[in-house]
Simulated scan of single mutants.
Amino acid sequence: MIPNDNFRFIALDVETACGDPASICQIGLACVWPDNRIYTFSTLVNPGTAFDAFNIRLHGIGPDHVRNAPRFDEVLVLLFPVLSRHHLVQHSNFDKQAVNAASRTYGFDAPDFHWIDSVTIARRAWPELKGNGGHGLGNLKKVLKLDFHHHDAGEDARAAAQVVLRAEAYLGVPFDRIGNPDRKALSRHD
């Protein structure tokens, strides 16, 4: 069921069919309610393009899975009302690039969403991970003991939301202050 509530923020993740960022074949959302419960939603998307074998091996989604799935433009129209009124968390800049590229492919302007990067948030909360496995979801899964299936858009979105919630708890600072690019550094007592 498509979320249409008021959330603190929404984490968004996409999987793509090939090296073209516009080739979105799955969109996942992790919607965080004011009490920090997480509602996860995902949908397959027919990218209207060929799949690369590498991508299929990575996420397990192939042409047969998306044959009857809606196209990106159809999904965007349904999700736009909820996405446009929330901060969107992505784990790296890829998801924003993919959404913008897919929007342009279907003749839309890039949506003016309010993006925040959970990699930036993780770097501010756990700077010691730089050079020690890094701040990717794979390493954060191990370090923060997160339980999720990597390279599934709904699961990765939920993991990004959990990274943000853990960083908020660790630093005692709300996500929008941690993720603000104008902030130089935060300490646990900021």
Rank of each mutant, 00 (worst) to 15 (best):
N68V: 08
V164C: 10
I116M: 15
N139V: 01
Q97H: 14
W126K: 00
H91R: 09
W115T: 03
H65I: 03
F72R: 00
A110L: 07
Y106P: 02
A69Q: 04
S84D: 14
D95W: 05
D156Q: 08
P47D: 06
H87R: 14
Q162H: 13
I56H: 11
E168A: 07
V163S: 09
H149M: 12
N100F: 12
V77T: 15
V66C: 09
H65G: 06
H87A: 15
G107W: 10
R123I: 02
A69T: 07
R57N: 15
F72H: 07
T43P: 02
P81I: 08
E128C: 02
P81S: 09
A110G: 13
A101L: 05
P111F: 05
V163D: 05
E155R: 03
A122V: 06
Q97P: 01
E168R: 10
D147I: 12
F51V: 06
D152C: 13
F41N: 03
P47K: 02
V77C: 13
L146R: 04
V77F: 11
P111A: 01
F148G: 04
R124W: 00
L137W: 01
D156F: 04
F113H: 05
L44G: 01
T120A: 11
F54S: 14
V66F: 00
V82Y: 02
A50W: 05
R57G: 11
H149G: 08
L137P: 03
N132K: 14
E74K: 11
L140G: 00
V89K: 01
L129W: 03
V164D: 01
I61D: 01
A157I: 11
H150W: 04
L76F: 14
G133H: 06
P47W: 02
G131C: 00
G62S: 10
